[in-house]
Design a binder for these strands. Sequence first.
DNA 1: GGCGAAGGCTTTATCGATATACCTGGGTGC
DNA 2: GCACCCAGGTATATCGATAAAGCCTTCGCC
Lengths: 339, 339
Amino acid sequence: MAPVTMSDVARVAGVSVMTVSNVVNGRPRVSAETRLRVLEVVADLGYEVNLTAKRLRAGRTGTVALVVPRFDHPYFGELAGRFATLLGEKGLHLAVEQSGASREGELSAVSHARLHMYDGVILSVVGLHYDDVDRLRTDLPIVLLGEQVVPERFDHVMMANVEGARLATAHLLERGSRRVAMAGGTPSGPSTGASELRSEGWRAAHRDAGLEPPEDLLVPMPDLEAATAHRVVAEALARARERGALPDAVFAVTDQVSLGVRAALHDAGLRVPQDVRLIGFDDLGLVQHVPPGLSSVDPHNGWIVERATDLLLSRIAGSTEPPQHLVAPASIAARASTA
Amino acid sequence: MAPVTMSDVARVAGVSVMTVSNVVNGRPRVSAETRLRVLEVVADLGYEVNLTAKRLRAGRTGTVALVVPRFDHPYFGELAGRFATLLGEKGLHLAVEQSGASREGELSAVSHARLHMYDGVILSVVGLHYDDVDRLRTDLPIVLLGEQVVPERFDHVMMANVEGARLATAHLLERGSRRVAMAGGTPSGPSTGASELRSEGWRAAHRDAGLEPPEDLLVPMPDLEAATAHRVVAEALARARERGALPDAVFAVTDQVSLGVRAALHDAGLRVPQDVRLIGFDDLGLVQHVPPGLSSVDPHNGWIVERATDLLLSRIAGSTEPPQHLVAPASIAARASTA
DNA sequence: GGCGAAGGCTTTATCGATATACCTGGGTGC
DNA sequence: GCACCCAGGTATATCGATAAAGCCTTCGCC
């Protein structure tokens, strides 16, 4: 029951621990005969290396961590899946940790990860402020994802928030929509998060089309859950209907929100796209299966994951290049909801 | 840049490493004065314990692993979120790893986890066969989740597959449906996975109602992705329409499949629930927002997570109780899709 | 005043694996 | 015949933290 160690194998095989290590790691300088005997004992006893010990000595585990705000958001699930696949090809393992989208959670997750369980960390920044991030020590390779403005000294990969939102809104305006609401939008202010940046894109598209951004069609939300969007948008629609001022299109700040909006529209008896066009952001795999097929902004997650992985791996390899700040391209995945 | 170790702190503070350890861990036998000085140096240098070393010595990291087949399935995302919350309350961290739903992937994930990076493992079994599981060494606490039959000697928590499927099908039959298709169902055979077990439940409900299970209404699928379901069901509907034998209800083996079925029904111009009733399995948070609101079997994930956590924690604490095999209750979450 | 106890700290051994230096016996070169 | 090389191993130190035991002082108490 007690774990089998190298010295157990060594004792049984009648050789030194070092020889066992050499055999197990396929190093030269061991006679074929000895090698065979050791391997036999290894199989017999069911020996496996203790990664913890190996790590302590070697300084690496072959595992990197991805810290996401929440496990139960499909967006992060998709992201994690991509990272796992890509890292797997490079011979590394991925462990995912949840930060809870709160400042404390992320701080604790990073400090925990920092504690050398992993060779590197990909941190999806949501709750942390500039100063918090700035305070992170960096004896561990870190790549940041997310929409916050972060200190220069970190590698950072982000989505094209403004541009993606601009494309989405323009897509709706081009198709003839004139009252384009933004679900999860926020009034002008400091550009600190996805919601603010995407609202900027929504404004830009209006101005590009020679229109004044209709600020009354911004529908702010306390969070970006589907359930919240469902509720908030239902209320907003009821009010708009009273005033006889229904929107003819909705740009949802995320696909999760888009899902809630879709549900609220359905409840209100409004058809998509005949009465209201709808487009989201993230291009989650599932939205194409939500009737009638929801359009979305494709943030090119594949690109993001590749770049972030490259950056992390080169840092792990010891690169001291100046930190990079990359922005992914964005494009429209047009489906029936904006036809 | 190089990580700060205890001996760095010790040197600067002019004490022994052991004293630093005692201060950091709040052990007695250190004068208030020394304690203060050490803490100052700790803050100055930004020292943090090296968990790897601690682990090697103490035999525990305070982190447990959850191994799931895929990161990008909402079901596992929800599950992971629940585990993280619950374990967090108990002072433990959760790291999630992906096995890739393949035999090799799960074996490698378990062997990797076994290698003492974690204090315990919750393994969601999908690709492994009985023999593979049986071959696992068990010097690390393991709790199994999932629908496979597993060796007695492991703790195991599973869903009420047969019963849940029976309830769902009965729910449809009670509402007057008479041609209840099963999307993702499989012909009678050895009960090795969720699909087989749930098909058994579908049969049982028919027999309970005095009906012969309509085996021609089983729609098998190569995998349980929404996209696959969308495609396969679309084809099945086309064939059924030709024969003039459309179903009047569908029980989908999972909510992912249910989503694909919903899309296929929409494409075929069939209304839910007027033309076809629809119910899934898993009660994912998102299905209530998919128009018109999809019914589902609630597998009581909260219960599963609590039991699994309890079992794991008590194993970690050293319990040698006989292994437990638990089955969660199941109930129907009725929504508009089966009204 | 002497002796045990307790406080405050340091030393030593250890977790499991591995890099490095070191040892031994038989060729090889010249 | 002597120095040197090399294959095949072994012995030692080390990664960072910690349990356990050891070593001085100082203090209390009979």
